[in-house]
């Protein structure tokens, strides 16, 4: 069986800085995959290149066996994307945004309208469906963005930091929708800093650091008996015994209410 996502030697520089230095990302079909890594590890750059929004300097990307840059039509019909930074058409209402997205993808109008209303209901956005997206809160924007990404029922869903800045209630809604989506055999790839969430949701984890994949595989294999958080800190070399200037206690002697 072909993997949902497979990249080989994916490479990208911005000026002097190498953001992604040869990434071989693998995500088996039907998995709920987490892409984790510290800030600046190259997660967003990797996801942008994988979804065809950023041109790589080298390497290949296949989604469901189709090459992203050779066969864009087949790939673009199969993927849904929620990019970083909540970039949405701000001057459309939530409902209009979903309609626009559906029609752009050539779905029949009655179908678009049916799916829109159902998604708005599940996301608990019916009350604000006619407000402009520019007036939405962060959680609402993530939810409407996810709804737009799901509207055409993609086979593979890419989400960049979907839970960042989202309140627990909205996060719960997102999780419910995503769990239901993967249980039908579709694939989710999402990047996150929140280890607890990744540990709870994912069955596949790819750990990035400094532009490389440093570990990748089923969740239990990566954890190897530790919590994911500990495994992550060990992998990216930032655990207590790691590099840096000691345990940081000398530098902050004035901090806290203990009087000298």
């Amino acid at each position: 069986m072909t993997d949902a996502v497979r990249t080989q030697g994916l490479f990208k520089r911005f000026g002097q800085q190498t953001a992604v230095a040869g990434v071989d990302l693998v995500v088996p079909r039907g998995s709920f995959a987490g892409l984790v890594g510290p800030n600046g590890a190259g997660k967003t750059t990797t996801l942008s290149m994988t979804t065809g929004l950023l041109r790589p300097d080298g390497g290949s990307i296949h989604i469901d066996g189709f090459d992203v840059w050779q066969d864009p039509v087949a790939v673009k019909a199969r993927i849904g994307v929620l990019p970083e930074g909540l970039r949405l058409f701000e001057r459309l209402s939530g409902r209009e945004l979903l309609h626009y997205n559906g029609q752009l993808r050539g779905l029949p109008k009655p179908e678009v309208e049916r799916r829109t209303e159902e998604l708005l209901a599940v996301m608990d956005l019916l009350g604000s469906a006619d407000k402009l997206v520019v007036d939405y809160s962060t959680g609402m924007r993530k939810k409407i963005g996810l709804a737009a990404a799901l509207l055409h029922n993609p086979a593979v869903l890419f989400l960049d930091e979907p839970f960042e800045g989202v309140d627990p209630v909205s996060a719960n809604t997102l999780v419910d929708v995503l769990t239901r989506y993967t249980s039908s055999g579709s694939t989710v790839v999402f990047s996150s800093h929140v280890m607890d969430l990744v540990e709870r949701l994912c069955d596949w984890v790819s750990v990035m650091s400094g532009g490389y994949i440093v570990a990748q595989g089923p969740l239990d294999q990566i954890r190897a008996g530790r919590t994911l958080n500990q495994a992550f800190l060990d992998l990216v070399g930032a655990s207590n015994s790691g590099s840096g200037s000691g345990n940081g206690e000398e530098g902050l002697s004035w901090l806290g209410s203990a009087q000298a």
């Binding site: 929004l53 790939v75 673009k76 752009l104």
Partner: peptide
């Protein structure tokens, strides 16, 4: 004017 939202179109257009 679409600016950063243009990805929504770019991610659809294949031809």
């Amino acid at each position: 004017i679409d600016g950063r939202s243009l990805w929504m179109n770019a991610v659809v257009y294949g031809t």
